[in-house]
Amino acid sequence: MSVTPALDLRGIGKSFGPVKVLDDVSFSAYPGEITALVGDNGAGKSTLVNCIGGVHPPDSGEYRFEGRRVRVHSPRDASLLGIEIVHQDLALCENLDIVQNLFLGREQRNGLTLDEDMMEEIARTTLSGLAVRTLGSARRPISTLSGGQRQIVAIARAVLLDNKVVILDEPTAALGIAQSQQILEVVRRLADKGLAVVLISHNINDVFAVSDRIAALYLGRMVAQVRTADVTHRQVVELITRGTGGEVGLRR
């Protein structure tokens, strides 16, 4: 591979007490591509994401970011590198409006006072770069938004600053068909802008609809990292459920 992966983990191990949750896991995500991370419940997806995000630093293995070895021991380290995670529970403040949520904790200031105008302008640019349309007014409170619109706001929050890697945890899990489609469009657009996108999903159709690569975890081991075009639905389902599918996956 000539392109340097934005995120490159090698031989990651992580145990909680006697339980080995991740065993020698390697995982890469490339700029401009969507890497789908699939696996059944308990396969270690969340733990891997938490390792990447610095919530639970890995016990062993190598963490490379844009080719450099880095140490990520806290969410702050990850965020300084430009890695953002959009969690499933979006963590938005319903009483605040879209602009206020996007800039929460990193408000633009003009001396002592908030620079509302500048924040609204940046928010507008970010949102219109993401969605086909923005969300009515950028001053709408979150409480008036639908689930899909909230997801867009959460994603926009992750890409507002100059981020390199965005990890989306089940972004369409709670949404209807139309809204899921809209979110997937947005996710695709993120990758087209050159970000490395990691998409965690249980929905095989979604995975095939947008991803460039698929990484399958099975009982704490990475059983396959393949190009989406090279595998079939059936193979991926088997990778998830049995750890092997056709010529890919674990050798029996």
Binding site: H87, A91, C93, E94, N95, L96, G105, E107
Partner: peptide, 21 residues
């Protein structure tokens, strides 16, 4: 002020405020 904004954020969703730093 951002201090005021943070007060509203803590009241709206303390977890979101914590994650926002």
């Amino acid at each position: 002020t951002s201090y005021g904004r943070h007060i509203y954020a803590v009241g709206g969703n303390a977890e979101a405020a914590r994650r926002a730093g």
